[in-house]
Computed example of a mutant assay.
Amino acid sequence: MRFDTKLAVLLRDDLQTWQRLNVTAFLVSGIPSRHPEVIGEPYADADGTAYLPMFRQPVLVFEAAKERLTAAYERALARGLEVAVFTADLFTTGNDDDNRAAVAAVPREALDLVGIAVYGPRNAVDRSLKGARMHP
């Protein structure tokens, strides 16, 4: 199935494995609050055990060097796409309030990005992430 929208995560390529997983989970967590249509129906197994719903479309994960990540971030914003950010400072905080304060304390051009999530029309997301490679 081909979707009109794309949900993608771009991670800095120098992150440790645990950081990549943590950043990805945090970055995609806000998308359903703004776009509930990205969530499918709840799951159930053959025994009737109920499970939470998940995204109805794939989440594509990419990686790139810091400079390419920053360029993709700027292109996504210029295209009016919705972007979630995770900065290096967030590895030292322990809660949502401190996370928001850490981002708010830094001007946009000085954010030390380690990952972004981008959601929007498929072609615009593709153009924003141009040059990034699929995460291995």
Rank of each mutant, 00 (worst) to 15 (best):
R2H: 12
F3P: 03
D4Q: 07
L7P: 00
A8C: 10
L10K: 06
R12D: 09
R12G: 02
D13A: 05
Q16T: 11
W18E: 05
W18K: 08
Q19I: 05
Q19W: 01
L21V: 11
L21T: 10
N22C: 07
V23F: 04
V28Y: 08
I31R: 01
P32W: 02
S33Q: 15
R34C: 07
P36D: 03
P36G: 04
P36F: 01
E37P: 03
P42R: 04
Y43V: 10
D47T: 15
A50M: 12
Y51H: 15
P53D: 06
P53W: 08
M54H: 11
V61A: 01
F62A: 09
F62D: 05
A64W: 00
L69R: 04
E74L: 09
R75W: 00
A78T: 09
R79G: 13
G80S: 08
V85N: 02
V85H: 00
T87K: 02
T87E: 00
D89E: 14
L90K: 06
L90Q: 08
F91D: 07
T92E: 15
T92N: 14
G94F: 13
N95T: 08
D96I: 14
A101K: 14
A101Q: 13
V103A: 11
A105D: 08
V106D: 02
P107V: 08
P107Q: 08
E109K: 11
D112M: 04
D112H: 07
A117R: 00
V118G: 03
G120Y: 00
R122E: 09
R122N: 09
R122K: 14
A124G: 09
D126C: 05
L129P: 01
K130F: 10
G131D: 06
A132N: 04
R133L: 13
